[in-house]
């Protein structure tokens, strides 16, 4: 009987540990005075935030303290970095800015973009969310291709706002179809996620091979899915127009456009 009790208590303990590890719990709120964040990335242990309303980039330490600001961007959106270079899609200039050592240059893209909203890299691959053209402009390492066209059927897009390239997939925030869409690298739609949750503007995305985080902008929440499309968690408390997410060093960062803040979460 003693043995059974010990085993039972151990199982209870393990199961409580397990459940604790599956959910993201809020750990801090970093206030961003006078910053209306749109996109977030991390480089050399600094957070970089695009401040769309003020046409600038902001470099912050991991505690949210502003280190430096860089002006004269034209509506910078969902940025990323590769090999020490920041890549910033400019909605206002229809171009991708490369920002390295305080110097700007432009990424050459053969397609004419109309309000690029996001960019991502995977090894030699590049993908750009081309907002007003309702498509993804994708470089597979050899050729540039177009993925998607305007519409609401599977494989079609309606104002894509964010993108991530993974080893075998391209994950798209299909913003005003209110869903996430997964494509293979030939441009075939593999899966549509999130229709049941009735999102209202799926504006920002992060994925890491295990979880997909999507910001549900107008409903002030972030939805966490697995790759089968199962909803794992709804993060809502205190969010105010969330617009991008990032996981770095086991910490989830969610930025709030209207709330002018970064919320952090840990498991």
């Amino acid at each position: 009987m003693k043995h059974i009790t010990v085993v039972f208590i151990s199982l209870l303990f393990l199961s409580s540990c397990n459940s604790r590890n599956t959910e993201w719990k809020q750990t801090s709120i970093l206030k961003l005075d006078n910053i209306s964040p749109i996109g977030i990335t991390v480089q050399d242990n600094y957070l970089w935030v695009s401040d769309g309303d003020n046409n600038r980039l902001v470099k912050l330490d991991l505690q949210g303290k502003i280190v430096e600001t860089f002006d004269e961007f034209q509506r910078p959106m969902h940025l990323t970095n590769k090999d020490g270079v920041l890549y910033i899609p400019e909605y206002g200039s229809d171009s991708i800015v490369k920002f390295e050592g305080n110097k700007k240059s432009f990424l050459k893209v053969p397609e004419k973009l109309d309000a690029p909203a996001a960019i991502d890299f995977y090894e030699e691959e590049i993908a750009i969310a081309d907002f007003y053209n309702h498509r993804i402009v994708y470089f597979n390492g050899k050729d540039w291709k177009i993925i998607g066209k305007k519409g609401n059927k599977k494989g079609e897009l309606f104002y894509p706002t964010d993108i991530k390239i993974e080893k075998k997939k391209i994950v798209v925030a299909d913003a005003y179809n209110n869903r996430v869409q997964l494509f293979d690298k030939e441009g075939n739609s593999l899966k549509v996620i999130g229709k049941e949750e009735k999102m209202n503007a799926a504006t920002g995305l992060f994925s890491n091979g295990k979880e997909i985080f999507i910001t549900d902008f107008e409903n002030d929440r972030v939805l966490v899915y697995n790759y089968e499309g199962t909803l794992l968690q709804i993060i809502k408390e205190g969010l105010n127009k969330p617009i991008d997410a990032l996981v770095f060093n086991d910490t989830l960062y969610i930025i709030n456009y209207a709330g002018k803040s970064i919320f952090t979460f840990n498991k």
Binding site: I38, G52, R75, Y91, G92, A115, T203, F217
Partner: peptide
């Protein structure tokens, strides 16, 4: 003008 995508669209 609550949504930046629309607000910046107006600018365009």
């Amino acid at each position: 003008l609550g949504c930046p995508f629309c607000a910046y669209g107006l600018e365009k």
